[in-house]
Every structure is written in C-alpha cells, then in structure tokens.
Design a binder for these strands. Sequence first.
DNA 1: TTGAAAGCGCTAACAG
DNA 2: CTGTTAGCGCTTTCAA
Lengths: 334, 334
Amino acid sequence: MTASLSDIAIRAGVSVKTVSGALHGGSARMSEETRQRIKEIAEELGYVTNFAARSMRQGWMPLVGLVADDLITSPFATEIIRGLDGAVRAADMAVFAMTLGGHRSIASILDEMRRFRPRAIAYAAMYHKSVDLPPEFADAVGVMINCRDANDRVTSLVPDETGAALEITNYLIDAGRRNIAFINLPGLLAGELRELGFRRALDQAGIDGAGAIVLPAVSKAIYSDRAHSLVATHVQALMNGPRRPDAILCGNDRVAMEVYAALRREGAAIPDDVAIASFDNQVEIASRLDPPLTTMALPHRAMGRQAAQILLAEDRAPVGVQKLPFQLVERASV
Amino acid sequence: MTASLSDIAIRAGVSVKTVSGALHGGSARMSEETRQRIKEIAEELGYVTNFAARSMRQGWMPLVGLVADDLITSPFATEIIRGLDGAVRAADMAVFAMTLGGHRSIASILDEMRRFRPRAIAYAAMYHKSVDLPPEFADAVGVMINCRDANDRVTSLVPDETGAALEITNYLIDAGRRNIAFINLPGLLAGELRELGFRRALDQAGIDGAGAIVLPAVSKAIYSDRAHSLVATHVQALMNGPRRPDAILCGNDRVAMEVYAALRREGAAIPDDVAIASFDNQVEIASRLDPPLTTMALPHRAMGRQAAQILLAEDRAPVGVQKLPFQLVERASV
DNA sequence: TTGAAAGCGCTAACAG
DNA sequence: CTGTTAGCGCTTTCAA
C-alpha cells in the first residue's frame, strides 16, 4: 500500500534506523548529503509517517481527545474547539472530537475514545452544567470544559456567570437604568448563577432588589430552543404594567431577538425607551439586530486554549473550578 | 499503563489468541464458559482495545477522515458532520475531522491526515465552491462534499443551487408574486447558479425576465459576512423606485434578516406587501424572525450521509458531480 | 477448540 | 556516524 521506512532504506541502501533519523531528525547527526538523498527518495515513494506504528513504541497517539455532549454540532460553542485546536496543534498534535449523541453513555464514549490512545482527554458540555462523571473515569479525563464534575474530582473550566451578570447589570445601571427586568433561562445552572449576580448588582446600587423582576423565557421548567416561548407575553405585560422597565436583560441572544420583536410591537424604541443587553454574543444574530446588541461574550475560545495548557502541562493541574470571565461587547442597544 | 491482551491471557491461563477471540468474537467458537471468564478478567483489568496495534495488522485505523476548509467552526454546516458521523458510526468507525485553518495548504493537511491511516478521506468546503485539489491527492480523497474538484477527478456532492432557485422562485410566482427582486451573494458559485434558476423560473412563467432585478448583498466583489452590507440601501431604493417589488428573494437567512429590518423601516408588511424567501434555513434565525422565514434548506445532512455511503462502499463510486436537492421549509413570510 | 509464532512499521537500546 | 536487534499489542497462519 504505502511505502514504509524499510522500503526507503532498501532503495537508499541504508538501514531503517538511518532513514528514521533522517526523516524525523533524531538527535543523531548524519551527513547532510545522505539525509537529503533519503528525503528525496521518501518524497518520490510518497512516504507518509505511520502514527499508529509510532504509537506502539510511544504508548500514545499524538491526539488530544475531546468528548463533547453535543458540542461539535452546536453553532457557537465551536469556539471551544478553535481554542483547543490552536494550542494543541502548536504541540504537534491533533484534536480528535467525538460527540455523545443519541443514547450512548459517557462511559461508553470515553472507552471508545481510549481505544485510540490519545495523549489526554477533555470533556466538554454544550452549555454550562454539572456532569456526573463515572468514578472510574475521573482520571481518564484531564479537564472539563464548560462544565464541572458533580464530585469535583476533575479540574474544570467554566464561564464566570455570576461575575458576568454583575458586570452587565452594573453597565445598565451606569447607563442610568433603574427598572431592569431579567428574562432568564429557567432550569439552567447558568441562569441560576446569573440571577445571583443580577440581584447582587441591584443590591449594591441600592436599587430595590427585592422587587427585581426575573422572568423565565420559556414555559417549560428547563430552557430549550424548542420550548414554547413566553418572551412576547412577558414583554407585553411588562410594557403595559405598573412598573415599566427601562432595560431588559436577556438570557441569551435568541431571547434578545424575540424581545426586539416584541418591543417593536409595543412601539418602544431601543435603547431610548428600553435598553437591551444579553449573554452569548452569537455574532450572526447580535451584530445584525437593529440596533446591534450589547452582550456578554462567553469565554469559549479562552476555555479551549486554557484546556490545552492544562492537558499538555507536565504536571497535573490541581483539581478545582476555574471561572473564566466573559467579555463585554458594546454595541448600540444600551 | 493499560492492560494488554497478554496480561489477560496470563491471568486467565490461556493464550493471547484465545483472549483475542473471546473479546472480539473471532469466528472461532469456544466454550461459553471460558469466554465469560475472560471477559470478566478483561473488565476487571480495565482492558481497552488498542486500535493502533490492531491497525498495524489491518493496515488502517477505523477512521474516516474529514478535511474541511473551515467547516467545523462554521455554525450551520456542522450538519454535514452529523450526517457523516451517523453513517460512519453505523460501520463501527469514527469521524476524524481536521480543519484547514490559517495558512496551511490542502496538501499538507491531507498528508497530516494520512499519517493517521484513515480508511477513507472526505474533503468538505464551508460553502459551495470549486477546489483545486493537488493532482497527487486525487485518489487519496474519496469524495468531496459541498464542493467539486476543479478537474473533476473526484466524486463530489453539491447542493442543487439552480434547482433550488427555480423551485423557490416558482413558489413565489405561485403565490401570485410578479415583481420579484433577488438580493444575491456576489462572487460565489452558489449565487451564480441560483441566478440561473431564478431567471429560468421567470422565463418559464412568462414574466419579463430581462428586467429581473438581481442585486448584490454586499459591496465587495465576493460575499462575506464581514463585508459592508448593501441590503438596507437596496431595499430602500427598491421600495421607493418605479418598480416596487412584491417579493424579495434573499441569498441567505442573514440577508433576509437585514431585509426584514429594512422593510420595517419602509413600513412594508411581510408577507402582505412583500413576500420574503431565502436560502439556508439557519434555524436559529429563520424560525425566530417575525414572521418566521420561508427558506430553502441546504442538504447538508444528506450530503454527509451520502458521503459515508460512497466512502464505505466496496467499489469506488463513478467520478461525477451529484446534485442534492434543497428542501423547501414553508413558514409565514410568503 | 486452543497454542505458538510471525509480522505489521516504528523507535530505542545497544554494537560496531 | 551507522547497522542490528528487540519489542510495542494485536491478528493471522499454521500446528497441535
């Protein structure tokens, strides 16, 4: 099929070892002339290194495994892969991603991944959550991205939800807004943590936090894109209620998109009557809304990069949860 | 490190061959009791098959390589991977994706992929285009997805752009529209082919095709999301011009999103005054627009599935370009 | 039914 | 500086 080192060796009249050294720059130095000749023959024969064979000696393939609960197919979280891939590539390895679709268990997919003998494995979630990693896999997984192990046995990287909510709420307050409603994502860890930050910001500003309005974006107990949206109803009620908001904080950019439509129906201007801010920075949407949306960008890219650092570091990172900051993207909706 | 077959063999007091047969169901039958015992020991030792070692004998890893020009990080084309992954997984293999980011050449990334000895390789493009595959790789790549080889040496799967434009235009005509403007994507193969279908539909309906209005969505010669948008300008001009359109066909859903905003400014109602239709079906946007957008869904999933069929088939598919149909998604904008 | 041995392509250890 | 050899874990062939 494909040429091997020994094919080249025969053709060049040298030993396999010499060829190996010539092509992969083993420390042993050899006459530059021989090296060049070997390289030419390799080229001519269309030689391609066989990583599987190499891995038999090394013990692992030059791979970093990424097991994701549905990540690859999620539109904007692909930034995690970008960040990871860049850093992993710099170490001459490749990212091998597997998606936990359908009804496969975490255990089975991790086992499948291990068959390929990756150097390290990361587990990533599509949205910030707590994951119950089977105990026997706690040390197969080197880092958790956008999620944390329910039993805190693995280093994890998560977005600083509370901090982000605090920051964006303060931003609204600084813009002079006092009646801020929050249309949050129900049933999600992210939503819970953000509500904390939201209320804290109001408290700190001396705004009547007790009366803070927090409403769920959908009628189901757990937010999902397919659940029946309550956004239109909420916005209508808010705008015609006793305490008209001068700002609405949205759980994500899709919710914001719906809020825009609802406000338009009420004849309210953004940001003059009502300022809008949100979480995610799903660029395709956020930058195209009219006016463009001010939103807190999730630190997906940074989590990916950081994960690579941790996985490729010589010594194991101390177990713990690292919170990465969101980035405020100022546009024109506030 | 990890247990090997021989570790199990020693522990079970049998030969390696027996263990291999017991675990991987080699045709040789053995006493069910032995098999069971071996399986238990394997479990206990945490045995995980080593694909690299297996591949030394088989000649290839149980992988289908996917080389993509930027696909993985593109939001909605991930459907290609979904389709591919499902079919590949059914054959007990995994998809190994690599992205051609930065300034790496196609040749270098294909070579890198081949180091892992995948069973087959697919090349995918983020948007429908012609790709100049280096000649020496023409038979390393088994199928091209969403693109075609500039020299037609590889089987390729592409969306039927012309057919889709024909269909959606006819749909608008059937809805009684006669003044249809097309805000197309300039500089892209897809746009070119769609314009063909658009004009053909008008001709066939006996509508003055010569006067058909086709306008570019951006000011640059080649469409991109970052280029300066002309949508607002065009819509304003159209709505205040001599030939007010009663329908606007958009190059993609993001363009449609901007058209919605522009029409709103003109005080035009959708679909009563102007019907809107588009290409892509970027669900996050299309289903959330107000009114929800009628659009032609790209056959990404189908291309992925079909690619797997071709790659895994015993005999090589005849070289040629297969056009896959879009799917009309009827919502409320027409 | 099971065992022994060879060999896949590569690198590391040891000789020359 | 270069060659020889062993061995990684697995499957396959040949023997028992």
